[in-house]
Write a protein that binds this DNA or RNA. Structure first.
Lengths: 157, 157
DNA sequence: GATACTGTAATTCTATTTCATACAGTTAAT
DNA sequence: ATTAACTGTATGAAATAGAATTACAGTATC
């Protein structure tokens, strides 16, 4: 499975983290750990859906154009076409006599499609904001841990 | 995403469709449209989980060893390790200063993991039997359609 | 002991995904 | 008006993952 969705979420979260701030494809690419071309392609899709604005030319780049609380992961997922649950390869052969071989593809498609609706319903419960929140939580946890270990050191002396 | 899950479901459905019947890896492979080695590998996993029995030697092959009504797609999915929602590539870099870059991987992992639980909860609602049922439904629909078109032909004459 | 199977490892082939390069178009600054 | 720093987009190369092939040891039946 390709990770355009992951990159898109990362980029949006980053822009939400740097509000009022323009970030170039190179800046975002470094943060994401990929190349600027890939970022520009993905940001182009996000722009078409209105999640970011872009500015060409000197001092240009990308800036958030939405409220992080209102953009669900489901919307972002759908912007990239969805359909990630169904594998590319499929079993069976429509020309076979055997009922199973002839019809399995359609039936599995049905199941993957319905399963995707479950997946999307989960993504609907989460937003760019809630991803950023969770990231901030990581920082707090790390602080707590370093405080604890500091305390242990004090107790040991 | 690889399609071991799809092949496994197809194979189990086929064995459920041919009850009391042993099928060789070659027979199953033809039905699935793949090669016998792949089938043997996948059937080996299904055997370890008790869904099929195997018999080596002449006249050997695979036979169902479970009740199709009781085996959910979730069980089969888990037998192959799950984790298919998370892409292989991941964004960010734990060594970065930036909070987002440093922590996005862990946070996205969390979301993919939780999303997978939703996916699995859907798969739990479906069994090998319900897949086969749906395949049989295809046949009935095709009969209906051919009857209808037959009727149209009669009306046209 | 020949035959028809499974089990498994190793290799090759193919498709998908990611990266790199190139360049036209746009904007800002000088 | 020229240069510099951007986006937008196309194209091809490199890396990775998935599937197919080949090979052969082990096992059961005839």
């Amino acid at each position: 499975m390709n990770s355009e969705f992951t990159v898109a979420v990362h980029s949006l979260v980053l822009l939400a983290y740097l509000p009022e701030h323009m970030a170039s494809s190179e800046t975002i690419a470094r943060n994401v750990s990929t190349n600027p071309t890939r970022i520009r392609k993905i940001m182009g899709i996000l722009r078409k859906h209105g999640y970011v604005s872009t500015k060409e030319g000197v001092g240009g780049g990308y800036i958030l154009n939405c409220e992080p609380q209102r953009v669900t992961l489901a919307e972002v997922y759908k912007a990239f076409g969805g359909g990630t649950l169904k594998p590319h390869w499929c079993s069976g052969n429509p020309d076979e006599e055997c009922l199973v071989s002839a019809n399995i593809e359609g039936v599995m498609d049905h199941f993957f499609h319905e399963a995707e609706q479950y997946y999307v319903s989960y993504l609907e419960q989460n937003t760019i904001h809630s991803v950023l929140d969770r990231i901030r939580l990581c920082q707090q946890n790390q602080k707590k841990i370093s405080q604890q270990s500091h305390q242990v050191q004090l107790e040991q002396t």
